[in-house]
Write a protein that binds this DNA or RNA. Structure first.
Length: 616
DNA sequence: TTAGGGTTAG
């Protein structure tokens, strides 16, 4: 086969090809040229071409189309296709290809099963795994370490631990992959205790994947402190963290708002000259954004070479929860100009940005482009954003009409968004109506009762408010206690509402009295309307208003940092209205920037104003 | 050939 010159030209064409909207068009042209020049007979060129197509979602169907054109594909090509789809968004294609392969003249080989089982584990498909298990035995691969480990993995990730252990126990000497597969199963299902026990027990030397499996398990279980602890332990071991380990550790930092540790990891990446691939870029951007550093997030974004849709989305999301609606929209337009197709998550991010900033018309137009220009069907999440957008802006009737007209059945999140809007805009009648619906839908969600009781209280219906509170107690649902944290010199100080456990609580309470006096001199009167304060006596009321966790944390920040230093607070719930007002005043009186990360977004306080424009 | 990774609403 004379392939030399045309083969090189072909490889050059592939390497120049830009991923994005025009990709399939360009691949078609290359394919046509291959056909003409006879390259389609060259196994090397075919492999290159198909692998390239399979590496991206938008062109994988084109690979299938080309593959179907072959008269008698050999085992290698079948395997290539099965592997290509196993990690795509359509792993069931791998199984379909396998069944077709069985009917063809090409025999499978030792490589076929691991690829196929990868597809099964991505599909979480138990029945298919069992079927393939039968084939593995039947065709004599029952002792092949790759096939067995892949089976352990598939059983473990589908939660069939008995079957996984059965295979695991039969292996004379399980290798590190066998252990990692088993541990991954427990980690994925949230059984971190069992995963840790196995992890500690494994006699095999742990590798980076073993560590990362545990760290990512903790992150996915929301146990971010444990994740970082294990990451530190990993650094003291003799295994170097790689880009995947670091990406997971960064996710933990993002969730915890642990800026110092996140920065440290970033400098580690730079020092070790670890390549910032698109995944690492995503988590770095997310970490900086969630730690309040949008400039840093933007710097990472600018420095990364390849920017797939996820990287743009990470940045746009960052702008969203910082309330930078215009910037979010501008990046959204930029990415489209670059030929990058937004995905469902991008749209959620842009709509959130519009909703947090009150960009009603822009949000509506983005919502309608979704289906019209990108053929993406709005999901319940997108509808939730729309209800939020309209509701926050006070367009309650329009929000209600939107819910009635939307093609999906409204869930608790949708009604919750409207309820919140009723509370903001003091629409008691509609609020009560929706509150009833929500409590029936979601009887064990504490927040529903709290909203409902607050709406009753707003209408001065004290009996009803008390009744809702009683109902909540009766159902045994507890309100999540408010908790704020402040990080000072690497130590995180945690405050709960009314908490007296802090070592310096007396000093903090004294300082708060001074702060409060200054606030009152500046016209501050506690705002009570959105809490149930009318139901309690004076002393309790005092305790509730003046011991909110964010007030304690800010007071501590004022005590412990030099004048002029920015105070950074994190809160697990939404910041309360009274605390928001107090924080604005403190930023002015004490000339401090205060950055507060609440459950859903950031508030940057400066000189008596908040970046959210009181729109939250 | 087998094991670990990404952005979202409330």
């Amino acid at each position: 086969m004379a392939v030399t010159s045309s083969s090189f030209a072909f490889e050059h064409n592939l390497s120049c090809l830009q991923k994005g909207s025009k990709e399939v068009e360009q691949l078609k042209q290359i394919h046509a040229r291959m056909l003409k020049s006879g390259l389609l007979q060259d196994p090397y060129a075919i492999t290159k071409f198909l692998s390239f197509c399979l590496s991206s979602t938008s062109s994988s169907y084109y690979a299938l189309h080309v593959f179907q054109g072959f008269d008698r594909p050999d085992t290698f090509l079948w395997n290539l296709m099965i592997r290509g789809f196993s990690c795509s968004d359509q792993p069931q294609r791998s199984l379909l290809l396998y069944y077709r392969m069985l009917c063809s003249s090409a025999p499978h080989n030792a490589y076929t099963f691991p690829f196929l089982l990868k597809a099964c584990s991505n599909l979480s498909a138990l029945e298919e795994t069992k079927q393939i298990h039968a084939h593995v035995t039947k065709f004599g691969y029952g002792d092949d370490v790759y096939a067995v480990n892949s089976l352990i993995n598939s059983y473990a990730v589908t939660g069939n631990f008995n079957l996984a252990h059965l295979l695991f126990d039969r292996i004379k000497e399980p290798d590190v992959v066998s252990w990692n597969s088993l541990i991954k199963g427990y980690a994925k299902s949230g059984n971190m205790d069992i995963a840790l026990t196995l992890f500690r027990r494994m006699p095999e030397k742990k590798n980076a994947i073993s560590w990362t499996t545990m760290i990512s398990g903790y992150v996915q279980a929301g146990m971010n402190k444990e994740a970082l602890q294990l990451f530190h332990e990993m650094q003291n071991s003799d295994v170097e963290p790689d880009n995947v380990s670091l990406a997971n550790a960064l996710s933990a930092c993002a969730q915890l708002g642990a800026l110092q540790q996140g920065k440290w990891i970033h400098s580690y990446v730079n020092q070790r000259r670890i390549i910032i691939d698109s995944v690492l870029a995503c988590v770095l951007i997310d970490m900086y954004a969630k730690c309040g550093e949008m400039e840093e997030a933007l710097a990472v974004f600018k420095n990364v070479n390849r920017k797939p849709v996820q990287v743009w989305t990470a940045l746009i999301s960052g702008y969203a929860y910082h309330g930078h609606g215009r910037e979010a929209i501008s990046k959204f337009l930029d990415m489209q100009r670059m030929g990058i197709k937004p995905n469902a998550i991008t749209f959620t991010a842009v709509l959130t940005a519009c909703s947090y900033t009150g960009l009603v018309e822009e949000g509506k137009s983005v919502f309608y482009t979704m289906e019209r220009e990108y053929n993406l069907k709005p999901t319940i999440e997108h509808c939730g954003c729309m209800v939020d957008l309209l509701g926050r802006a006070g367009l309650l009737d329009e929000a209600k009409r939107f819910i009635q007209k939307m093609p999906l059945k409204p869930n608790a999140v949708i009604w919750g968004a409207l309820l919140k809007a009723c509370q903001i805009h003091k629409n008691i009648e509609l609020g009560e109506e929706i509150g009833e619906v929500l409590i029936t839908m979601d009887p064990y969600h504490g927040g529903r009762y709290v909203h409902m009781a607050n709406i009753h209280a707003m209408g001065k219906k004290w009996d009803k408010a008390a009744e809702t509170r009683r109902l909540m107690k009766e159902q045994g649902v507890a309100k999540v206690p408010g908790c704020s944290t402040i990080s000072l010199e690497g130590t995180t100080h945690e405050f709960l509402a009314g908490d007296r456990s802090h070592a310096e609580i007396e000093e903090i309470r004294n300082k708060w009295r001074t702060v409060r006096r200054k606030l009152e001199e500046n016209g501050y009167v506690p705002e009570l309307e959105d809490t149930l304060l009318h139901l309690v006596d004076d002393e309790e009321r005092e305790a509730i208003v003046h011991q909110h966790s964010e007030k304690l944390a800010i007071t501590y920040g004022l005590m412990k940092t030099k004048p002029g230093t920015t105070i950074r607070i994190m809160k697990n719930l939404r910041v309360c209205k009274d605390c928001h007002r107090v924080t604005k005043l403190i930023s002015k009186i004490y000339k401090r920037d205060i950055v507060m990360r609440d459950r859903t977004r950031f508030h940057h306080f400066r000189d008596g104003k908040c970046s959210c424009g009181d729109y939250w």
